[in-house]
Simulated assay, not measured.
Amino acid sequence: MRILPVEPAHIPVLSQLAMDTFSETFAHLYPPEDLTAFLEKSYAPEKLAVEIADTAQFWRIVYEGDEAVAYLQCGPVGLPHAEADPTRMGELKRLYVRGSQQGKGLGKMLMAVALGWLDETYGQAPQWIGVWSENHKAQALYLSQGFEKVGEYQFPVGQTLDDEFILCRRL
């Protein structure tokens, strides 16, 4: 496994990986038109290029051999919570692993990379994560790292609104 900083040359692969992993995990929840709208809005190469160029964002992509199998993104917190301050606090925004690679410890490894970056970038400030209310596997990982539920919000996927939990880790 190789964990690499995302560079412009990775964008087409990252775009496909992001669409694939989101769909593997969540496609069954949405009408096809909502899923398509969300994927095109969130993971289009042009959109990712802008996000990757933002120096406040931290991106990593994981390859096993020639195949991209996972990625993560961190940056200033953007969750709708009264205590979340993007000028001094960070968020783990995305951590996705292909289904074929799950159960091998890759999620925990990427979590450690993300938390290391958040610690280095934001010091002892609280760290944030938003997670789907029914994604118990991800919640278990986050709770094992000291995050706790501090709020809820709705996340739009097309016209569908998902119930999400806001988790915070206070150092």
Score class of each variant (00 low, 15 high):
1 M>N: 00
3 I>W: 02
4 L>S: 07
4 L>V: 04
5 P>L: 02
5 P>G: 01
6 V>A: 14
8 P>L: 13
11 I>G: 07
11 I>M: 08
11 I>Y: 06
14 L>N: 01
16 Q>V: 10
18 A>C: 10
20 D>N: 06
20 D>Q: 08
20 D>F: 03
22 F>G: 05
24 E>Q: 15
24 E>Y: 10
27 A>S: 14
28 H>C: 08
29 L>Y: 08
29 L>F: 11
30 Y>F: 15
30 Y>Q: 07
31 P>K: 15
32 P>A: 11
32 P>W: 13
32 P>R: 14
33 E>V: 08
36 T>Q: 15
36 T>G: 03
38 F>K: 09
39 L>A: 07
39 L>K: 06
43 Y>L: 12
43 Y>Q: 09
44 A>K: 07
45 P>G: 11
48 L>S: 11
49 A>N: 03
51 E>G: 13
52 I>C: 12
53 A>G: 12
54 D>P: 03
55 T>M: 11
55 T>K: 13
55 T>L: 12
56 A>P: 05
63 Y>M: 01
67 E>A: 13
68 A>D: 02
70 A>R: 06
73 Q>Y: 00
75 G>Y: 04
76 P>H: 10
78 G>M: 04
78 G>Y: 06
78 G>T: 07
80 P>A: 13
80 P>H: 15
82 A>M: 12
84 A>L: 12
84 A>M: 08
88 R>G: 11
88 R>P: 05
89 M>C: 06
90 G>A: 09
92 L>R: 00
92 L>Q: 02
94 R>Q: 03
96 Y>M: 05
98 R>E: 08
99 G>M: 05
100 S>M: 05
101 Q>S: 14
102 Q>D: 06
102 Q>N: 01
106 L>W: 05
108 K>P: 00
108 K>V: 05
109 M>K: 14
110 L>G: 00
112 A>E: 14
112 A>R: 07
114 A>G: 05
115 L>V: 00
116 G>F: 10
116 G>S: 10
117 W>D: 02
117 W>H: 10
121 T>D: 11
121 T>A: 15
122 Y>T: 04
123 G>H: 05
127 Q>W: 04
128 W>S: 12
128 W>A: 09
129 I>C: 03
131 V>S: 11
131 V>D: 06
132 W>R: 12
133 S>A: 15
133 S>F: 09
135 N>M: 15
136 H>R: 11
139 Q>M: 15
139 Q>I: 14
139 Q>C: 13
140 A>V: 09
140 A>L: 12
141 L>T: 03
142 Y>E: 03
142 Y>S: 07
143 L>K: 15
145 Q>M: 15
146 G>F: 14
147 F>T: 06
147 F>C: 13
149 K>D: 09
152 E>C: 05
153 Y>E: 06
153 Y>Q: 09
154 Q>H: 15
154 Q>G: 12
156 P>C: 01
158 G>C: 08
159 Q>S: 14
159 Q>A: 15
160 T>D: 11
160 T>F: 14
163 D>Q: 14
164 E>R: 01
166 I>F: 11
166 I>R: 12
168 C>N: 03
169 R>A: 06
169 R>M: 03
170 R>Y: 07
170 R>K: 15
171 L>E: 06
